[in-house]
């Protein structure tokens, strides 16, 4: 159950506001994603063969040409979208700050992910698309997995979960994606919002398994530019909220080497995601929410018009 605490309610309102503003910005853009639209469309004809359903015979063609043909159409179905949130402890840090209870909606990777997924849920709600949510890691999660459904109630549940989650611990992306994939329809879309701070070898196989079953996988790789540029003023003992031994580091001394490591790692991640037709979107947390949302929906790079101010 969603803890109906004032803080959670405030966060829900805040998330809703952020999402609505962002969605309006997107809708004022040019073209929503074709992939998210679903419709019943004519495909082609084929000669009748014994066993074909008689109701599929096109009698008009028979009347004009005296030939029996069967009318074939594309399957008519909704495209369920599952939003996956990485709620590991690493998502809640930021330069100059520390891991708090619940992340602010802005300013760190976890908060940015919450806003981004809330916006996406809002958008899909408006499109009457079924949308669900899975949370990997974290604490105070009312429901780990909300299967994709359409409707206002589903949107409320998603916003409630997002407002309640407290990032902590490890996400265990590989294992989490396997669990999520087990309950996901074959034709569906999975949107993963994560900093991917786990070894690629641990989660890439699960992602590839989704790709092999033709699930539309879209990875929002969240990163804090200041964090990956080691913008820390003085040497310190760096530690991960997920645990592990701290390491003494002089940021100024190793910045260039760290950048090289980041470049190599980013390329490694990109290759892992796109290996099975996945869409890889690097998402810096200092950009407006509408920016990655628009890129996610359209695949284009043009920026949407700002709607409700900054977000």
């Amino acid at each position: 159950m969603i803890p109906w605490e004032p803080e959670v309610l405030s966060r829900i309102r805040r998330l809703a506001l952020v999402a609505r503003c962002a969605v309006e910005g997107v809708l004022h853009g040019e073209h929503p994603s074709r992939a998210l639209a679903s419709s019943v469309t004519f495909a082609d004809y084929k000669p009748y063969a014994p066993g074909d359903p008689v109701r599929d015979l096109d009698w008009r063609v028979w009347a004009r040409t005296d030939r029996l043909v069967v009318r074939r159409t594309q399957a008519e179905s909704d495209l369920p979208v599952l939003l996956v949130l990485d709620a590991s402890g690493d998502m809640s840090t930021r330069p100059g700050g520390s891991a708090g209870d619940r992340p602010p909606i802005e300013g760190n990777k976890a908060g940015y992910a919450l806003g981004l997924l809330a916006t996406l849920a809002w958008y899909l709600y408006l499109r009457r698309e079924p949308v669900g949510l899975a949370v990997l890691g974290g604490e105070d999660v009312p429901w780990r997995i909300l299967s994709p459904r359409a409707g206002r109630h589903q949107l409320g549940s998603i916003l409630g979960v997002l407002a309640s989650v407290r990032p902590s611990g490890r996400a265990d992306l590989g294992r989490g994606l396997q669990v999520v994939a087990a309950g996901l329809r074959r034709r569906s879309m999975l949107v993963l919002a994560s900093d991917l701070m786990e070894e690629v070898e641990s989660w890439a196989p699960a992602l590839h398994a989704l790709g092999r079953r033709r699930t539309d996988v879209r990875v929002l790789h969240l990163y804090d530019p200041r964090e990956l540029d080691l913008q820390f003023p003085r040497p310190a003992r760096f530690f991960s909220p997920e645990g592990g031994a701290p390491l003494a580091l002089d940021p100024a001394g190793v910045r260039e080497d760290f950048r090289a490591v980041v470049r190599a790692w980013t390329e490694e991640v990109r290759r892992a995601v796109t290996a099975w037709q996945g869409l890889y979107l690097p998402v810096p947390t200092d950009r407006p929410l509408a920016d990655p949302l628009f890129r996610l929906l359209s695949g284009g790079s043009r920026r949407p018009k700002p709607a409700c101010g900054r977000a």
Partner: peptide, 12 residues
Amino acid sequence: PIERQAFGAMML
């Protein structure tokens, strides 16, 4: 060093 700093990219 004395100062401690939580860091989200310890893997890197």
